[in-house]
């Protein structure tokens, strides 16, 4: 095949403004499509190659690292206002492979695969020997703490009745003996006072919230402290498909209410969207 001039790959620098713009478009895509866990920010671009695309445009093949923020995926807070989770809070890193098409000056993601892993226990211990470490979210104490906190919130809440959507992260605190848990909730059509009504098991409204709770073990009982933020109701639109998406590779469900349940262990999550190749 004769070489076609002008169609060779490019290798721009990882900190090249165009590379950064492509990576940031990838991070935006990630945060718009992940419906559980936390929003992530760009931390470091590891590799980049740029391929020409027929009939026009270029595809940025990117590898980059992200860091978990304290904003839940359903939180409407702009990413710029989300704090990066610190090492002492047991940070979580994301590792992403993405293909980002640039055409007519616009970026669009055509392939995305990200996996996240928590920092090692040893690394956290080096910086903070006493800091509580992440605990699997299916831990009995964690599940109990989330349910107790949600019950306490519903008991005090005059508005909608909320149900547990996912447990997002948790830590067992040694002193005072307590369980710290963060979890997402979804409102049902029932008022809080009707929580025991069987009719309340119907399909939930699309109103989500995010709670942080501490359940401390006390002599003869426990003390529950919970704070929940309810996000404004958001219209639920179908997820946009990557350009070359096929029915053989369906994206995750658009409805968080039917998204996979909480991860069975420490939140090590991954999402693969769109076709394998451009």
């Amino acid at each position: 095949t004769p070489v076609v001039l002008g169609l060779e790959e490019r290798n721009p620098a990882c900190d090249d403004p165009e590379t950064e713009a492509a990576a940031l478009a990838g991070v935006d895509y990630l945060n718009q499509h992940v419906r559980w866990g936390y929003k992530h920010v760009l931390n470091q671009i590891d590799k980049v190659r740029v391929w020409p695309r027929r009939p026009s445009g270029e595809v940025y093949e990117l590898e980059f690292d992200t860091l978990e923020t304290t904003c839940h995926a359903l939180d409407i807070t702009p990413l710029a206002n989300c704090s990066v989770r610190t090492v002492t809070q047991h940070a979580v890193e994301g590792d992403c492979d993405m293909h980002v098409l640039k055409q007519d000056g616009q970026f669009s993601v055509v392939f995305a695969k990200c996996e996240s892993t928590p920092d090692s226990r040893e690394d956290v211990r080096k910086v903070c020997p006493q800091c509580p470490l992440l605990t699997p979210v299916n831990n009995t104490k964690v599940v109990h703490a989330a349910n107790a906190a949600l019950a306490a919130f519903n008991a005090q809440n005059n508005g909608s009745h909320f149900e547990l959507l996912e447990i997002s992260r948790a830590q067992l605190v040694p002193l005072p003996v307590s369980t710290y848990v963060e979890f997402a909730v979804v409102a049902t059509d029932c008022a809080a006072a009707d929580g025991t009504d069987p009719a309340c098991s119907g399909p939930p409204k699309k109103q989500y919230g995010f709670c942080k709770a501490t359940v401390a073990e006390k002599l003869g009982g426990e003390e529950v402290s919970v704070t929940c933020t309810v996000f404004p109701t958001q219209p639920v639109a179908p997820l946009p498909q990557p350009d070359a998406a096929s029915s053989a590779n369906p994206p995750p469900a658009a409805d968080p209410a039917v998204s996979p349940p909480s991860s069975p262990s420490v939140p090590v999550d991954s999402v693969a969207l769109g076709p394998k190749r451009v």
């Binding site: 290798n11 721009p12 620098a13 990882c14 900190d15 590379t19 950064e20 920010v41 760009l42 931390n43 470091q44 671009i45 590891d46 590799k47 980049v48 690292d65 860091l67 990066v84 090492v87 940070a91 890193e93 920092d119 090692s120 690394d123």
Partner: peptide, 28 residues
């Protein structure tokens, strides 16, 4: 005619390696 050999331009700013890029927060 004697000419001086070319002198290297000296130590200038070293460009950063093309990849990986800078760490924006911290590496774990």
């Amino acid at each position: 005619k004697v000419t001086h050999p070319g002198v290297a331009s000296g130590v200038g700013p070293v460009p950063p390696p093309p990849c990986p890029g800078r760490i924006r927060h911290f590496k774990i």
